[in-house]
């Protein structure tokens, strides 16, 4: 783990091992360091906005004592996907698979939401089958619809708002990842605003054709 200042804006803990990352995820839930009012997760990093190095080091020492709780036995959310994405054929070709195999490999694993970013509620999903790991498209698309199920690098994801993007498009889900109506509440509840949360497990299920 590296601990470094992020300009005068906070402290970044980076190069986290999986164990360090999950310990920190629990730690931030039970309280942030003094002066820190917000945190942001990266792939193997966490930014503690407003925090000072010394306070973070003390906070980390407290963290070392905490046991990592067992993963909450939360269920696995099933997300129905209409596998009609524009890149199914090109992905199959690039991975040396058939389209059916791509769909099978994509819908087999249980994924875990690693972090959210890029757009509001956009989940970076761990657990993509290595046979589907592909570099991003060389030319990103200008306009991808919300609900588009896609893969990029070692991750699966779902576009949460209309945006440009460079991932490979496999299908579409009706799930609304960023609920603007709930965002209008006076005191918005993240569980209502965002369909998914960090640490949540999900699985994709091909929509049964009528």
């Amino acid at each position: 783990m590296k601990c470094r200042i992020y300009g005068d804006r906070g402290v970044l803990l980076s190069s986290l091992s999986e164990a360090e990352r999950s310990r920190l995820l629990h730690r931030v839930e039970s309280g942030l360091p003094p002066a820190c009012d917000e945190y942001v997760l990266g792939y193997d990093s966490i930014l503690l906005i407003g925090a000072q190095t010394i306070a973070v080091q003390e906070w980390l020492e407290q963290t070392n004592g905490t046991e990592v709780r067992a993963i909450k036995p939360s269920g696995c959310r099933i997300i129905e996907v209409d596998y009609t994405g524009a890149d199914l054929d090109s992905v199959a070709q690039a991975c040396n698979l058939t389209v059916t195999e791509v769909i099978e490999l994509h819908s087999a694993p249980v994924y875990t939401v690693r972090m959210m970013g890029f757009s509001p509620g956009f989940p970076y999903l761990d657990g993509l089958d290595p046979r589907l790991h592909l570099d991003r498209r060389s030319s990103p698309r200008d306009h991808i619809l919300p609900g588009t199920v896609a893969i990029g690098g070692a991750h699966a994801g779902i576009y949460s708002v209309a945006s440009p993007g460079g991932w490979h498009l496999l299908g579409h889900t009706e799930l609304n990842l960023f609920n603007l109506d709930a965002a209008r509440d006076l005191d918005p509840d993240p569980a209502q605003v965002f369909a998914l949360s960090v640490g949540q497990r999900i699985r994709f299920q091909p929509m049964s054709t009528p």
């Binding site: 992020y6 300009g7 970044l12 942001v40 990266g42 792939y43 193997d44 930014l47």
Partner: peptide, 9 residues
């Protein structure tokens, strides 16, 4: 790099 938090500035 692996995706890292970004702030204005």
């Amino acid at each position: 790099i692996p995706s890292e938090p970004v702030l204005p500035g």
